[in-house]
Design a protein around this nucleic acid. Structure first.
Lengths: 342, 342
DNA sequence: CTAAATCATGCAAACGTTTGCATAGAGATT
DNA sequence: AATCTCTATGCAAACGTTTGCATGATTTAG
C-alpha cells in the first residue's frame, strides 16, 4: 500500500497536455491560455498535488534547510535565542535544523561534517566554549555556505557576527555594586577560552580600576561549567577564606543562584553580608528569595537579527559584494533583591 | 566563483570509465576488479568527492530528516526530551528538525502542513495543550509517515505512544502530603484539555479519596499557562480564602515555585504552615530555599525511547506488520524542603 | 577448437521539475 | 496566395546517482 504522490505528469496525462504546460500553468506563466491554467489548477487542487521538494532541491542544487548549532538547547539562554531564530524563519520557505554541540569542539566539527553531506542553505552558530580553532567553521565558508556567528565571538574569523556587549554589561554590574557600598567584590568566571567570559572578566576588572579598587587574584575564581553545581565550590572557597568578599559577581545566573544557596547555608545574609549579581536574567531568577539581581541580555532579539542577516546573505545575488555585519546588543542591569539599593 | 562539487561523472571522465563503474566501486560491488575499485577510491579521496545527498534523496524519494514537534523548546522539560532524542539520532544517518508549536494547535497544523511539503522520514510529536482534534496528525499517518507521540496522550488516536505515568506520580505526591500530616490539600491544575493535567488531577482526587479526605471544589484551581506567572493568582486565591489549605500540589515546578514565593510574601512559613510539591524536577528547583519537593519524570529516557521506536518503525520492511508500542515511564517522588518529613 | 561459463564493465532508464528553444496553427499583412 | 507575426504549447535536456540488463573479453570445459 505504498503511497504514490500525484506528479505533474499525472496531471498532464489526465488533461492530455505536456508536463511543461502543467508546470507553467502552476506558475502562472503569461504565455498560457487562461483556460488551460484554470483547468490545471483545478485538477491540481482536486488531486491535492504537492510539488516534490526533493526534485526541486535536486534541480536547483540547494536545499531550504538552515542549520542552527548551539552549545546546549537545555539552557534557557540558547533556547530563547533559537525561539527568536524560529520566529523569523518559520514564516519563510526555510526549515530549521537544530544541533547541539554540548560545548565540545569535537562534536561541533562532527555536526559540520554531517551537515556538509546534506547540502544546507546556511548556518547559524554559537560556538562551543572549547572552540578555539576555527578550521571546521572555515570549511563551511570555503563551500560558500552563508554563515552567521552569534553570542560568542570567534576572534580572527571573518564572518557575520551578532554579539552582546558583555564587557559593558559586566562593567555596569560591578560599578553598581561599588556604588551600593561594596568594596571587596569577587568574580566567579568561567572557561577563559570563551569570549563572553573574557569580556565579562575585563568589564569586572575595569570597573574596579575605574573606582580605584584593587584587583585581587584571590577574588577571581575560575570554574569549568555553566551549571548550578559549578558555583558551589567557588563560593565556598570565597566565603571560607580569610579575606571574605562583600559581593560576588557571577558569570551567569545559574552560578549566581548556587552561590546564593551556598552563602545562605554558610549563614550569610543576602544582600546585607554579601551582594550577588548574576548574568542572563533567566525567567526563574525573579522567583528566588531574595530575587536575583542580574544582567539582562536581549537574547531573543539576537536570535532574530542573526536569522535576518543570514536570510539576507542567502538571498544575495550571485555577484553582489558581501558586506560583513558586526552587530552588538546592549545589556540591561536588573536590580532586584540580592544587591543593596543605591 | 561558484563552487562546483565533484561528481561521479568527473571521476569517471578522469579515469576513462563509466559513471556506473564509479558508483559500484564506491559501494564495493563484488563484480569489480580490485584494481579499478582502488583507483576510483583513491581519486575520490584525493578530490574529496561527496555524494550529492539531494540526488540520492530524489532517487530514493525519501529524505533522512526526522521532525520533532514540541510545544515549547524554552522549557527544561521539552529541551531535555529533545536532548534524549538527539543522543539517539545524531549517531545515525538521520538529521533532526525541531519545530515549536507554542502550545497552539493552529501552529502545530501549520508546521505539519509545511513538513508535508518537504518529505520527511518520520515525526516525533508532543502535542500542544490545545490539540483536541487530531486531523492534522492523522494526515501524517495517511501519508505513511512513521509517527511517535510522546509525553502527552492523544486519546482515540492510534499511534506509537511513549508517556509518563502522571496519575501515579500525582497520587504518590498527594499521598505523601497526607502521610506527612496535611489534611487540606489544594491542587493547582492546568488546561483540562491536556491529558497530563487530567491524569495528575485524577491522581490527586484518588489519593484524597483513598485517605478518606473530602474532595473540595474550592481546592482545585485551574490556571491557563505553564509559566511562573500563572501560579500567582491561584495561590493568592487559595491563601486569602476563608478555608486556607495546608498544602498545595502544583501541576508543575514553575507553578510550584511561584506558589512558594507568593506564600512567602503572604507570610506563610514553608513547610510549617503550607507544604508545596511540584512536578517535573527542573534543575534549578533544588536551589530554592527551601528546596522544592517535586515529582521527577524520566524525560531524557522518554526522548531516547521515542526516538528508538521511531527509528525501528522507519526501518521496518515494506510488508512487515506494524505493532503499535505503548510505553509508560514511572515517575519518582523527590522529597526536599517544601514538604514535611514523615 | 568450439561452446559455454565467467568476469568486468558499459548502457540507458528512472526519479520530478523547470526552461530555452522549436513549432503548429491561427490570424494579419502584403 | 504567399509571407509574416503572434499565441499557445510541446520537446528535450539537465540535475547526480543507482541498477537491471546487455555486451565484449577472457577463461574454462568438453
Amino acid at each position: 500500500m505504498k503511497r504514490t504522490r500525484i506528479t505533474i505528469k499525472d496531471i498532464a496525462n489526465e488533461l492530455n497536455i505536456s508536463a511543461s504546460t502543467v508546470s507553467r500553468a502552476l506558475q502562472d506563466h503569461p504565455a498560457l491560455k487562461e483556460e488551460t491554467k484554470e483547468a490545471v489548477k483545478a485538477l491540481a487542487k482536486k488531486w491535492n498535488y504537492r510539488p516534490n521538494s526533493m526534485a526541486l532541491n535536486f534541480l536547483r542544487q540547494t536545499s531550504t534547510t538552515i542549520a542552527v548549532i548551539v552549545p546546549d538547547i537545555t539552557s534557557y539562554f540558547f533556547s530563547a535565542a533559537v525561539t527568536g531564530i524560529q520566529d523569523i524563519l518559520v514564516p519563510t520557505q526555510y526549515n530549521i535544523m537544530i544541533c547541539a554541540s554540548n560545548e565540545s569542539i569535537e562534536e561541533e566539527a562532527l555536526i559540520i561534517e554531517k551537515l556538509s553531506k546534506v547540502q544546507i542553505a546556511g548556518v547559524l552558530i554559537a560556538p562551543a566554549s572549547t572552540t578555539t580553532n576555527f578550521d571546521h567553521i572555515r570549511k563551511l565558508q570555503k563551500n560558500n555556505i552563508p554563515l552567521v556567528i552569534f553570542d560568542r565571538d570567534c576572534k580572527g574569523l571573518e564572518a557575520h557576527k551578532v554579539l552582546v556587549d558583555d564587557y559593558s554589561g559586566a562593567f555596569e554590574a560591578v560599578d553598581y555594586l561599588i556604588k551600593s557600598g561594596c568594596k571587596k567584590i569577587a568574580h566567579i568566571t568561567g572557561d577563559s577560552d570563551l569570549s563572553t567570559n573574557n569580556y565579562r572578566l575585563q568589564g569586572y576588572v575595569d570597573a574596579l580600576k575605574k573606582n580605584n579598587l584593587p584587583v585581587l587574584e584571590e577574588f577571581i575564581i575560575h570554574t569549568q561549567g555553566f551549571k548550578h553545581k559549578d558555583g558551589i565550590k567557588p563560593t565556598e572557597l570565597l566565603l571560607e577564606s580569610k579575606n571574605i568578599p562583600d559581593a560576588i559577581f557571577a558569570v551567569n545566573d545559574r552560578i549566581a543562584v548556587s552561590a546564593m544557596r551556598t552563602a545562605k547555608k554558610l549563614n550569610f545574609r543576602i544582600p546585607e553580608d554579601i551582594s550577588i549579581i548574576g548574568f542572563d536574567d533567566e525567567p526563574h531568577s525573579t522567583y528566588f528569595t531574595p530575587a536575583l539581581s542580574t544582567v539582562w541580555q536581549p537574547v531573543y532579539s539576537m536570535g532574530m537579527l542573526s536569522a535576518r542577516i543570514l536570510l539576507h546573505d542567502i538571498n544575495l545575488e550571485e555577484g553582489a559584494d558581501l558586506k560583513l555585519r558586526y552587530e552588538v546588543f546592549k545589556t540591561e542591569l536588573v536590580i532586584r533583591g540580592t544587591s543593596k539599593r543605591i
